[in-house]
Structures are given as C-alpha cells and as structure tokens.
C-alpha cells in the first residue's frame, strides 16, 4: 500500500488532503461535543423563570394624598370639576410625561351596561392628559373576554383613539414575570408589562361594581387586568390577591366612576336593572381610600370588604377616607 502511494504522488497528495479534512472533522465534532457536554442533566423546570420585571412607583413624590368626591350625572363635568378641585390635571401630569391609563375593559358589553370604564370618561381623561402636555397616552387592559371585541364593543377603543391615545391590546409577548416583594401569590407571574415601558404616570379608571367573590370590583380589583396566565386560580384567595395588587402598583391617580353603580349580578351585569344611578365620581391619589368610599355606593362599608383592610394594613393607603379630608363638589 505504502509502496503504491510512493508510486503515485498524486494519490499521496489526495490522501494527505483527505486525512487533513478527516482530522479537522473529528477535531471539530469532538470540540463541539466536549464544549456542549452536559454531565449534570437538565434542571427540573424552565417555564416562567426568565427575566423578572417590576413596576416603579408612579405616585407624585412629595404630594400628600388628595381625594375629591364629585356629585353629578355628567361624567365629563364631574371629572373636570373633581380634577380642578385637586389642582387640575397639571398637578399630576406634566409636560413630556408618558401616561398609561388602565381601564376596566373586562367584558365585551356596551358602555350603557356599566360593566366597563365609560368611553366618555376615557376620552375626557385622555384629552386632559394631552392638554396638560403629556407626550403620549396609552390605554390598555388584559380583558377577560376577547380583547379586540372588548375594546370595540365597550367603545373604549374608539374613545381612546379619537382623543389621541394609543390603544395597547395585550399580546402574548407583552407579558413578563413579576414578583411582588413580600407577596405570597404574585410570584414570577406574567404581568402586562410591555405597555409600561417608558411610562412615568399611571391612571387607573374603574367603575363601581358588585363582585360576587370579592364583594366589590373597584380601583384595586381593576389591577387584576394587568395579570396574565391562568390568573383565575387566584380566586381561591382573592382578598389577599387584591392586597398584593395594591402593593404591585402605586398609581399616580385613580378615577372611580360611580355615576352608575352595578348593585347586583356583578361583575358582568348585563341588564339596566342591575344598575343604580348614584351620581358620584371619585378622583384620588390614594386608591384604598377611593375604594373605601366606593363601598358605600354599593351599600356596603369598607369593613365588609376584607381586601380594603388588608391593603390598608400593608401600607397601600388608608381606609379612613375622611382622614384625607376629601373635597366634596357638586356639578
């Protein structure tokens, strides 16, 4: 064989070249094999463990808690009046701010049923934000029913767009795991985080509604709509969950709409008979206080709603709303 090779230099060169290539192939595969070798094996579970996020404090630093209870049947007027009595929208939104409005768009039902934030109110608040100089206003929610249908049927989508806000529909990739520090429930749980990017002011806007499991759905419960995943398992411990929601987010402002209150059949409602005209709109920097007052519109008290006490206990606000000396105005 060697003799053979010696007789054929061309063959020898071919053989050497081939050997070199074979050697390179072996070296490359061995290198890859050793570099990627995993002697331990995979870890137990990988889902939901990557990249944790958390929300900053959106409240105005140094501002003492303010609250206004406005009476009247016209949301646009009560909202304007209430904000004016707290120093105007300019107190909360300054030039160049990026504002996120978290509405309650949970159900694909018309605005008249008051199961969702009223579009007139959304338009007016967006308008006021822009008037105050906001660089951008985004309206978002992760509703229970199909998001697109919800924003279309409630009128919130159109209201937001026509008044100059951007509508952020929740996409799967918008959620990132979050953990509430000291929380037991919201741990590595998907949060609708993407719309919060670049935002420095957050306004929560919710209607006052009866809610069978928690007693009431108002400003605090509204943040439930920021969670993703199989969030309904939290119904097993809903008061503690709402307490954690109050810790998860510190909004700039909440606007609680009790122009109509859903007295029964909540939180979906579905009939005008479920509603009672209560002609009240609350604007507050303390979301616990807002809900504590909201409870009275439902004919309940803060004590009837354990989540209010729990939220107050953990320092998210006060349930003694009178201590804030709320401004009472009538439109």
């Amino acid at each position: 064989m060697n003799q053979d090779l010696a007789e054929h230099p061309h063959t020898r060169r071919e053989f050497l070249l081939r050997s070199a290539k074979a050697g390179a192939l072996i070296a490359a595969s061995s290198l890859a094999g050793f570099l990627l070798h995993d002697s331990k094996g995979p870890a137990a579970s990988s889902d939901g463990d990557s990249g944790s996020v958390s929300l900053p404090d959106f409240s105005i630093p140094g501002l003492t808690s303010r609250m206004c209870i406005a009476t009247g049947d016209d949301r646009t007027r009560t909202a304007n009046l209430a904000l004016k009595s707290l120093g105007g929208m300019e107190t909360f939104v300054q030039r160049g701010d990026h504002v996120l409005i978290k509405v309650n768009a949970a159900f694909a039902t018309p605005a008249i049923l008051c199961a969702t934030t009223h579009p007139d109110l959304v338009s007016e608040v967006v308008r006021l934000c822009i008037h105050a100089g906001a660089a951008s206003v985004t309206v978002t929610d992760n509703p229970i029913n199909d998001p697109e249908s919800c924003f279309a049927l409630t009128g919130i989508g159109e209201a937001a767009r026509s008044s100059g806000a951007r509508l952020a529909l929740p996409r799967q990739t918008d959620f990132h795991p979050t953990t509430v520090s000291g929380g037991m429930l919201i741990r590595k749980w998907p949060l609708l985080y993407e719309p919060f990017k670049g935002v420095n002011k957050v306004i929560g806007m919710a209607p006052v509604k009866d809610h069978h499991r928690s007693g009431a759905s108002m400003s605090l419960k509204n943040w439930y709509g920021l969670l993703g995943g199989r969030r309904n398992i939290f119904h097993q411990d809903i008061h503690r969950l709402i307490q954690e929601l109050a810790l998860m987010i510190k909004p700039t402002l909440v606007i609680l709409d009790g122009t109509f209150t859903m007295m029964t059949n909540g939180p979906t409602g579905g009939s005008l008979g479920d509603l009672k005209q209560t002609n009240t709109l609350i604007v507050s920097t303390d979301q616990v206080a807002a809900d504590a007052f909201g409870a009275t519109l439902l004919g309940r008290s803060a004590r009837d709603l354990p989540f209010i006490g729990k939220a107050a206990e953990s320092g998210a606000g006060t349930q003694d709303f009178e201590s804030l000396q709320p401004v009472r105005v009538t439109a």
Binding site: L185, K188, G229, I233, F234, Q236, D237
Partner: peptide
C-alpha cells in the same frame, strides 16, 4: 402536575 406551573390547580 409539578413539571408545569401553568397547570397548577391551587395557589
């Protein structure tokens, strides 16, 4: 089942 948190039944 414990291999997926998304399938947990309880809190």
């Amino acid at each position: 089942e414990s291999r997926s948190r998304k399938r947990s039944l309880l809190l």
